[in-house]
Design a protein around this nucleic acid. Structure first.
Lengths: 118, 118
DNA sequence: TTACTTAGTTACACCGATGTTACTGTTATT
DNA sequence: AATAACAGTAACATCGGTGTAACTAAGTAA
């Protein structure tokens, strides 16, 4: 019986770890907004995202995009325009986030109603 | 056409807000682990959760539980035992998080494989 | 009488995430 | 010659989330 409990707790730990992995990838004040911006347009330039995501600074945008790239959620492509422009696009893996984001959005709406009544 | 874009952007903003509402409710280093602990056992006492959630301090546990209670995700019941014990339980609303958490866990597993290869 | 348990609270410190401002380098425009 | 656009980078300040340690209060056991 003790063995069963331990096994159960280990399953639990794995679950926790994987949830944490997901949350880590999404962590950062602007990540989800950035992903949504790119997602909506397919491809999106740095300055476009800067406009889309209300309140973000170029510093933070640059930082968050780098992290998203590290996590293989977006790709970065430099275009030989003048002046140079940079296009960001969701990877296939990044696109799988859409389900999660939709679920979060749906739950968020219900939650807001619960809490504020609106 | 300009009108259409504005409408679209407003939809986008609403989506962002509701995702943020959801994230806010889940934010905090220990919240998901705490929810999982309570969820697994149905009801769970303060000191039990303290043991379940590896690394959490009583200060943080108390704080996070308060926030979860404010967000109507858990209920707090004082039992007239000696010494007093306190039982925490997920609300119906709190239980609706299970879907989200499962999705996050599932995505996290895939994501970890992508990044680390394991 | 002292120590222990439960469920917290209080005071203090720290660090990392974020914000602000200014700057780079290249090219085109005025 | 000076300015603007693009995609950032660098230096500095700040603030909130988190950690640590000690403490409370009531009752029980040694």
């Amino acid at each position: 019986m003790r063995c069963a409990i331990t096994e159960f707790q280990q399953e639990q730990k794995k679950r926790m770890r994987s949830v944490q992995d997901a949350m880590d990838a999404l962590n950062g004040k602007w990540k989800i907004a950035i992903i949504s911006s790119i997602c909506c347009y397919g491809k999106r330039r740095f300055s476009d995202i800067l406009n889309d995501v209300e309140g973000v600074s170029n510093r933070m945008l640059s930082k968050e995009l780098k992290e998203l790239e590290l996590n293989q959620l977006v790709t970065r492509t430099v275009l030989a325009t003048q002046p140079i422009t940079v296009e960001y696009e969701l990877t296939e893996h990044g696109n799988t986030l859409q389900t999660i984001i939709s679920e979060l959005s749906g739950w968020g709406i219900v939650h807001r109603k619960k809490i504020t009544g609106k």
